[in-house]
């Protein structure tokens, strides 16, 4: 046996090559490039704001022509803002997805500007369908001939709601009669539970706005409750659901509750064909948010229609309409 072996100088080179090969493979495998091509563009070609508006109109008409979607099957869905655009959209979008699958029509959310009106959007055909309270519906019906398709069912399975007057737990105001000379907060001026029904309560109890030291519109039920909790207002008229929650937490006391009135529902404008209305109405009645259609919904139990819908009748709104006319909220009656 030979004890001497030739030193293998090649092994070092091979090892080096191997290391380089592994490094190359690692780099290739880690390549995170995408397939988006680079477009050569001229950024010096600018459009002034006026030119931009003209160009946008051209683009809109061009893209409108190129759009292959049948326009008659596309509907916009408006809604009274309850929380925030994000939160409301998160609640309504899965609901619209259900409507799309149930009817075969396309539904898109329509966001009404703060200085706009859900009622006007519906009347001006910016939206064809809308989720709105009874007060808004009465206005939409009065002004634009809208129809109520369905009313929302609450957790007890009833298509009605009411309003409460609340005070701080240590308040000396113990009943509705005591609020004269005190400050009163409402929610949104267009809200049924936050304004119309509290106004009915005042009227039923012979209290006018002049009997109060002051009153204010806080914009929402939540703001209204906070104004009482913070001491800015002595009393707040708001929706039953939120009031009960606050009572459970010991934050407020209820001093008065209203009668039951027709709950919020889905309304359609006069431009939608009857066959579409029928199909959508049936889909709404078939909607089972606590059952088979629960998956994918977002906090639907916090809406005013947690148990789905029931068909609405014209007679449901008779009393409320009379109150609205009496209180001067309806300008025109159809």
């Amino acid at each position: 046996m030979r004890l001497h072996r030739k030193p293998n100088y090649c092994s070092g080179g091979k090892a080096t090559l191997l290391v380089l090969l592994i490094l190359s493979l690692l780099l290739i495998s880690c390549d995170s490039s995408d397939n988006i091509p680079i477009q050569q563009v001229d950024s010096s070609d600018r459009l002034s704001d006026n030119d931009l508006q003209l160009e946008n109109k051209k683009i809109q008409s061009l893209r409108q022509e190129n759009s292959k979607l049948p326009q008659h099957n596309n509907f916009y869905f408006g809604f009274d803002l309850r929380s925030s655009p994000q939160e409301d959209a998160a609640q309504y979008q899965p609901f619209l997805n259900y409507l799309e699958s149930a009817t075969g029509y396309q539904f898109k959310l329509h966001f009404t500007p703060l200085n706009g009106s859900t009622v006007d959007d519906l009347g001006q055909n910016k939206t064809q369908f809308a989720a709105m309270g009874a007060d808004s519906f009465l206005k939409a019906q009065s002004l634009y001939g809208a129809k109520s398709l369905v009313r929302g069912l609450n957790l007890q399975g009833k298509a009605e709601y009411r309003s409460f007057f609340i005070v701080k737990p240590n308040s000396h105001i113990l009943s509705i009669k005591d609020i004269k000379g005190h400050t009163l907060a409402f929610g949104n001026r267009n809200s049924t539970q936050g304004h119309l029904i509290p106004r009915i309560i005042l009227s039923e109890n012979g209290i006018s706005l002049d009997d109060l030291s002051s009153y204010s519109y806080t914009g929402s039920h939540q703001n209204c409750a906070e104004s009482v909790v913070s001491g800015q207002s002595d009393v707040c008229g708001l929706q039953d659901k939120l009031a009960k929650n606050l009572v459970t937490q010991g934050i407020v006391n209820i001093i008065h509750s209203s009668h039951y009135y027709p709950s919020s529902g889905i309304v359609v404008n006069q431009f939608v064909p009857a066959d579409v209305i029928a199909k959508v109405k049936q889909a709404l009645i078939d909607f089972k948010p606590q059952g088979e259609h629960h998956t994918g919904l977002y906090h639907w139990d916090k809406t005013e229609m947690p148990n789905g819908f029931i068909a609405a009748k014209e007679s449901d709104y008779t009393e409320l309409r009379q109150w609205s006319i009496r209180l001067g909220f309806l300008e025109k009656v159809h």
Partner: peptide
């Protein structure tokens, strides 16, 4: 000083998924 014309005419793809997406690469001066 006004928006570049190429941005006005860019065809932005409809993005279904939430989150930030790289949609275009522009070579400008």
């Amino acid at each position: 000083k006004g928006i570049p014309r190429f941005l006005v005419h860019s065809n932005n793809p409809a993005i279904k998924q939430s989150g930030v997406h790289l949609v275009h690469k522009y070579q400008t001066e």
